[in-house]
Design a binder for these strands. Structure first.
Lengths: 253, 253
DNA sequence: CACTGTTGTGAACGCTGTTTATCGTGATAC
DNA sequence: GTATCACGATAAACAGCGTTCACAACAGTG
């Protein structure tokens, strides 16, 4: 990664890349410490030992800097999740996709709880800032994130197809709404998957996201002292709902 | 409400109250337009026709102003939800708590989709700002909000007890974590409710919150064109999970 | 009428993000 | 080896921010 095609990168380009990384690291630290609204360009500049105007050689403004950090965070989270998924897949013989989904979800929660500010930046940016306009790098990174979870769900269904609702029973308009995504899925990743399984996957993702977001944002503390067991309970009930109630196992620790 | 004990409120106090309301209204508009990070005290002052320092006669700082608006938003949302719940309860004979829960949830989604910025402020404030410290007016308003949903869930279970998991099957540590809230519930609202039903209620709230938050934050658009049917599907599967699959009915419109 | 406490103002302070003109410096070309 | 030049960084400046303070206008009370 560091020395691929060294002739292609001049010395200037390398030090520039390094400076950019330094700036982004400082921006992330500032972001974690003071939140999205509290980040200050001048503080970032001070942190890397530069004056404020110097940053404009690297980023057009503070918003673009935050966007760059956001994309990096998606990449970091994706790598973390894919690592957990692959480790779990390698550890199970024969492969057990529920185990992979469990590991992925736990990694997701671990990252979210450990990086609440970053989680808020990625998954709870209200549309006021229009950070989620289509065709932005953010959106692209976000959809790559979705695929990580989608892949394990698909594999779970293919390994062990469970009963799903037939299309005619679903809420009106739902089939039409999911159809584009469903046809894309059946064209690329899961040729034989019924539309009901896609809906089930989305509902599963809703539960995982919901429990993690509520915990991170402190909206569960009125009912539960620790979010961990509640998250585990969600995983257990997911095992039941995919027809494998015996598959859930509490975490080792 | 306007003329209770008129002797107790002097003329000065009344006009002061009115000014405060004006300021909060302007602050909310600014909040909706530019988000939590983009609100400006001077802009609020301009909007009500005052200079910036004048606002300090009413609020110690901009953070407290935002907090006051937040509390008001909780109250508004609570009123909206309780109104929908009571209307649904009055329209069903005999009373049907699922119907009430459905109406409450739909009101919740309607408010969230119609007021995305406000929703983000209430339900997705990352803990960097420590807006959710215990014993704040925010926390108090937040717990009142929780009770609206809790009451319909409880009534739903009492009208039609459904099968819930026994404590010994639940994820380790969960019983201990929910026990304080459970004992409070059985002491006050639901004397005969098993702890499994409380856990089910929490999982239900997670699903409702999850689907609404994902839609509002634009994190569902990669899979679904419109969040409405997906939300309705969640309501339908909730009906199934409380043992009343026939109770769900699509919205009238 | 004078007195008092509240409300609003203008000026000021230190800070912010951003722009501009300017200076030094490392890489490149002759 | 030296001239050239693009790039990196800077200081100065600007408008605007939240906040503080001293001071003026005013309503309500005796």
């Amino acid at each position: 990664m560091t020395t691929t095609a060294p002739s292609m990168t001049t010395r200037r380009e390398r030090v520039r890349e390094q400076t950019i990384d330094e700036i982004k690291a400082a921006a992330r630290a500032e972001l974690v410490a003071h939140g999205r609204g509290g980040i200050q360009l001048r503080a970032v500049a001070r942190s890397v030992g530069l004056t404020a105007p110097a940053l404009y050689r690297y980023f057009p403004g503070i918003d673009d800097l935050v966007t760059a950090v956001t994309v990096d965070l998606y990449d970091e989270l994706n790598a973390e999740l894919e690592g957990a998924r692959d480790a779990a897949t390698a550890a199970t013989d024969p492969p057990d996709a529920y185990e992979a989904m469990l590991a992925t979800s736990r990694a997701f929660r671990r990252w979210a709880v450990g990086h609440p500010s970053e989680f808020g930046l990625l998954f709870a940016t209200p549309p006021a800032g229009f950070a989620h306009a289509p065709d932005t790098p953010c959106e692209e990174a976000s959809s790559r994130f979705g695929t990580v979870f989608a892949s394990t769900f698909i594999q779970m269904w293919e390994e062990n197809p469970f009963a799903v609702d037939p299309p005619e029973e679903m809420a009106p308009g739902l089939v039409a709404g999911v159809e584009p995504y469903w046809t894309w899925l059946t064209d690329t990743l899961a040729p034989s998957m019924p539309i009901g399984a896609v809906v089930f996957f989305l509902e599963g993702w809703v539960r995982i996201y919901g429990i993690v977001a509520l915990e991170v944002f402190g909206h569960l503390s009125w009912a539960v002292t620790d979010g961990g067991p509640m998250f585990e309970e969600t995983m257990r009930s997911l095992a039941r709902d995919v027809g494998r109630p015996e598959a859930y196992r509490p975490p080792a620790a």
